[in-house]
Structures are given as C-alpha cells and as structure tokens.
C-alpha cells in the first residue's frame, strides 16, 4: 500500500457483517442501483465466503473496487459505481 494515497470519501455505507451469501451481494446491488455513476459505496464484508464472492461479483457487474482494507475479522471495501 502506498504512503500518500488520497483518502477516499464514501457517499454511502453498507454494513454487511453477519449477512450471508448471496443476500449480501443482492443488498449491495440494490444499494448501488440507487446511487449515481461515480459515487462511492463503503462496504463491510465478513472474511471467508462473503469476501471471496461479493468483490468478484461487484467487479463482474462493472463497478470498480478502489480500496480494500483488512480489519479485525472483516474487510472494508470502497466501491465506485460504474455505468
């Protein structure tokens, strides 16, 4: 991770800790749909299956993952809405 990275500001946050696959992805999708292109969604995902599956599905939907931070037992992701 580089030192002088600009801090990414989230336009919305979705805490999906404790939410199972694939409900976590569906909730992410619905949230992103309600946002504008270019806006950033902050996602909190559990380790294990959620973080194995949700990021790649988000990518496949055409959104960009700007940042991933591993925190205690979960991940914090910044997702920029694509077209």
């Amino acid at each position: 991770m580089s030192d002088a990275k600009p801090v990414i500001k989230a336009d919305a946050t979705l805490d999906l800790r404790g939410v199972m696959c694939p409900i976590n992805f569906v909730k992410t999708k619905l949230k992103i749909e309600a946002m504008e292109t270019g806006q950033v969604l902050e996602l909190l995902l559990d380790s294990g299956e959620p973080v194995q599956n949700v990021p790649k599905s988000v990518k496949e939907e055409g959104h960009k993952i700007l940042e991933v931070k591993k925190e205690d037992g979960h991940f914090r992701l910044m997702v920029k809405k694509g077209c």
Binding site: M1, S47, V51, Q52
Partner: peptide, 10 residues
C-alpha cells in the same frame, strides 16, 4: 498489486 489480501482470502 495494492496488497489488499483479497486473493489470499479468495
């Protein structure tokens, strides 16, 4: 690579 560790999780 940004060292985000997602690949190791995946």
């Amino acid at each position: 690579c940004t060292g985000c560790t997602i690949c190791a999780e995946a």
